[in-house]
Design a protein around this nucleic acid. Structure first.
Lengths: 258, 258
DNA sequence: ATTTATTTACTAAAATTTAGTAAATATAAA
DNA sequence: TTTATATTTACTAAATTTTAGTAAATAAAT
């Protein structure tokens, strides 16, 4: 079956396999070298950049749908996604994001008002924190471009995705103080200065150079290694690493990071 | 149009006005005299007690739907409802909650597998905190019984509503420490002992008899009045009341209650 | 050997939390 | 009228945590 045939099938019969009016969208935050970024996709038939997402199948849960769609739209697998809020305002789609002429031009199809794709959608928002890696959509007919944007400098977003990003960021920053993050985002071994910078970027706040790291140490979340990094004409900082057991239990039990 | 006709219309044509596969459910917690309760409904065609809820219309937002359905199912209007989580496991409805024979007996209808009502639902969970008032469903054909249950002694619940109640309670108890509650639940004027008991019941924890109230006072959230209550052969406690301005700003800005 | 930039340990002060005791006082009993 | 009692609530001291800043350590360049 060609990509176009697959698409026609989905547009005409998708309601047999998917839940009409139910989508998920994912705000994937990325950290690299002191910058906080967001992964966006640009579908050929959407006029604006959007969060990656799509329709939920009948036979999958929301978490599964979020993981599947993220992989399809961005090529990134095995992301840890966390639900933050569901959006269902009846006007949320009326933002001139979908371009029906472009859609017709590319597919020869029109989406009538009786199509299962028409009408008001509810979307379940998920967020994730990821290392900044190569993102690459899986090829399909309307295959989207995707890349990272600095959260301080986002393009105009489609649908109600600007509101969604705001809510995702707020939720993520609250969770930041209750659950450990950083594994897989920081290198295996890192200096105290690096983890402090990481938390500063994620939280958007300034932290104390020694008090914040020593809080992490006193919680047992990070521990010294016996390696140092050489960084030129300065005292060589020690490498630290996450304590696996404490980290895992903090993920379950939560913690308080002021 | 009779109630039965209305019901038939909904079952056959409801997809024209409602979003298939999208429902909301509301966990309404109530406080009265030191007890935490939950409002449940018992629909004639459901075998178990459930959270009040139902399908979302095309022309309404999720918040509106939650408010409308709560009013329809329980008779309670103007509740402040807060979204906590959305549930979409494909097996969440397979709990023998719906009784198709009873449904046929009452309506003469069967819901075929092609009905817009069949298939997997996603439900958006809302919670609310309410004073315990008279609850009374609006009369309709499958009109449900509804009443308060102590959260320590709930009946078996339909669908995945037991999981939902657990999540609602957890979320509510986290919010308890970040947002003020109590207005409209406590009387206009209350003693320090009463508000301490209120927070103990809501949080499920024991609080210090003087430290907890003095925290509330030092935050400015509650203030002394010059009235006392007479309670027999003991020192008469002073009445306190919420400071309107501080309460409202804390609702917006949040606060930290230990 | 000295200088320099940076990491990180340490300390003192401030603030908050915790636990417990004492004071206040309305009514009942003597 | 005085004393006893139960309960509310103010107060205090100790413990803990947070905050801010300084000092010590040190790798490498000069």
């Amino acid at each position: 079956m060609t990509a176009l045939q697959e698409l026609r099938e989905f547009i005409e019969k998708g309601y047999l396999t998917h839940r009409p009016h139910v989508t998920v969208d994912c705000a994937i935050f990325g950290y690299h070298d002191g910058e906080l970024k967001l992964l966006l996709v640009k579908n050929k038939v959407f006029t604006k950049w959007c969060l990656p997402g799509g329709f939920v199948r009948n036979d999958e849960g929301l978490d599964q749908a979020a993981a599947r769609l993220t992989a399809e739209r961005t090529g990134i697998e095995n992301l840890f996604l966390k639900q933050f809020k569901t959006f269902g305002d009846p006007l949320r789609n009326d933002n001139n994001t979908f371009d029906p002429e472009k859609f017709f031009e590319l597919t020869g199809l029109r989406i009538g008002e009786n199509s299962w794709l028409a009408g008001k959608n509810v979307t379940v928002g998920f967020y994730a924190i990821s290392d900044i890696i190569q993102a690459m959509p899986r090829p399909d007919f309307l295959s989207s471009e995707c890349r990272w944007f600095s959260v301080d400098n986002l393009p105009e977003l489609g649908f109600d995705h600007e509101e969604m990003v705001g809510e995702a960021l707020t939720t993520m920053r609250i969770h930041l103080y209750h659950f450990p993050i950083g594994k897989n985002l920081l290198p295996e071994k890192f200096t105290l200065k690096e983890i402090k910078l990481f938390y500063e970027v994620m939280s958007g706040k300034t932290l104390h150079a020694s008090n914040f790291p020593s809080k992490l140490i006193s919680l047992g979340l990070i521990v010294k290694t016996d390696e140092k990094r050489s960084i030129g004409a300065h005292r060589a900082p020690l490498y630290y690493t996450f304590d696996e057991a404490v980290y895992e239990s903090a993920l379950k039990e939560g913690l308080v990071l002021v």
